[in-house]
Write a protein that binds this DNA or RNA. Structure first.
Length: 169
DNA sequence: GCGACAG
DNA sequence: ATCTTGTCGC
């Protein structure tokens, strides 16, 4: 089974305004580079349940920082026609300079001479996160939104809420 | 051919 | 992703 969860937060307060979860049979295995084929069916189902259409969606995974520039965030954004941002916990492809240890520092993520995202230090002295545009948004704007969702933890509150919802209930 | 490889 | 206890650092 594959479970998906969504948490809709309001900015700049970051208060939770709505949440949903969905469970469906797994139809595709996890293969690096093909994550969306496994996760998108469940994601579309949870998002259909929302009574609020998000202005922007932060996805757990890459945006265009992908071999074919179509990570899960980009894929979902195209299908929904909603701005999306990829926020991954680890690297799929690309190279980058070392990122200063202070929260807020970041370095461009490069692949084939092309900027495909940003490696962001979301919390001081903690492993960075990988931010890339998904759909209908620029990298600077994507970084602004991701940072607006950060508090005292490595991951944005949106992701933390979704993970929490996906784990229990 | 060898290694790397989102969740 | 998941298996898993205590432990180090702010």
């Amino acid at each position: 089974m594959t479970k998906a969860a969504v948490a809709v937060l309001k900015l700049p307060s970051l208060e939770l305004v709505e949440s949903q979860t969905a469970l469906i049979p797994t139809t595709f295995p996890y293969i690096p580079g093909f994550l969306s084929f496994r996760e998108i069916p469940a994601l579309l189902k949870v998002i259909e349940k929302l009574t609020i259409i998000p202005d922007i969606i932060l996805c757990d995974g890459q945006g265009i920082a992908h071999p074919r520039r179509l990570g899960i965030a980009s894929h979902l954004g195209v299908l929904l026609n909603i701005p999306t941002i990829g926020v991954a916990k680890s690297l799929l492809i690309g190279k980058h300079e070392e990122v200063p240890l202070e929260k807020g520092s970041w370095k461009p993520l490069i692949d084939k001479k092309e900027v495909i995202g940003a490696v962001l230090r979301s919390r001081t002295n903690v492993k960075p996160i990988y931010v890339s545009i998904g759909h209908k948004i620029s990298l600077p704007t994507a970084l602004d939104y991701v940072m607006a969702c950060l508090t005292k933890y490595r991951l944005p509150e949106t992701t933390r809420w979704a993970d929490k919802l996906a784990s229990d209930k």
